[in-house]
Design a binder for these strands. Structure first.
Lengths: 125, 125
DNA sequence: TAAGTGTACTATAGCAGATAGTACACTTAA
DNA sequence: TTAAGTGTACTATCTGCTATAGTACACTTA
């Protein structure tokens, strides 16, 4: 389900956030589903509970999951995607960065579009 | 030419690397052009010379610039873009990350394609 | 010779990430 | 009621990366 790359420069808690988002989008986790508890997931991934807690806090901040005190954490039932201006700018920056990087590798617009289409095929299945 | 965001979570030396890449791609810097010296650029950006040196070292590692000892640093004349497998995987990861993030913001495939087209229009002018 | 180049060090401070451990209030099931 | 499991909130510590400051050296050019 979730695999962590300890050697990655990307922080572990961010990897957890991303993997859970991916799971939700790909349908592995559906609205209303109970998430693994913090202690449980930390054991599964052999990482610190605080790290999982940090990831869950971020996901809750983004309204993707909800917490019921004493019971557990659940995938939000009423998630409404919305376009925050800051997040949109960040997205654009990341994409621009990727485009420049691709350009330096000799990857042009058409080829990049193909790569993106390939990723969408992976995800939306 | 180059502006640094000190508040960004992105390291300064990476911002410098990116901005110079962008300059080369957009034609502001052409093959054979002399780069500003490390001490000069560090003064322009009010950052430490070591930080600029780190950025230049990275650009040289990627063969985008070349150093002639005692003379200075120049934009490579013979840069051959090549697709390193590691870098390609990183590019794909970044794009996948962006797609998942976009999805969470309610931005679908079509809209993302439009954003990317917009970025290309900005760059290739 | 003097100024300017890149490079290579050492040392220091600051910050973010990750871990360890403890404690508390809550819910649920026995 | 009790025990186990839940999220949460702390403190403390360690590590690595980033950035800065300062110094020194070999090189090239005017």
């Amino acid at each position: 389900m979730i695999n962590i790359d300890a050697r990655s420069s990307k922080p572990i808690f961010e990897q957890v956030v991303y993997k859970i988002k991916e799971n939700i989008i790909m349908g592995g986790l559906s609205p209303g589903d109970k998430m693994p508890s913090i202690r449980e997931l930390s054991k599964m991934l052999t990482i610190n509970p605080n790290t999982v807690s940090k990831a869950y806090a971020e996901l809750e901040r983004q309204k993707l999951i909800e917490t019921i005190s004493g019971k557990g954490t659940y995938v939000s039932l009423d998630y409404k995607p919305k376009v925050d201006e800051d997040r949109f700018r960040k997205l654009r920056d990341v994409l621009k960065d990727a485009i420049v990087e691709a350009h330096c590798m000799g990857i042009g617009q058409k080829q990049l579009a193909e790569i993106i289409n390939g990723i969408y095929k992976d995800i939306e299945r």
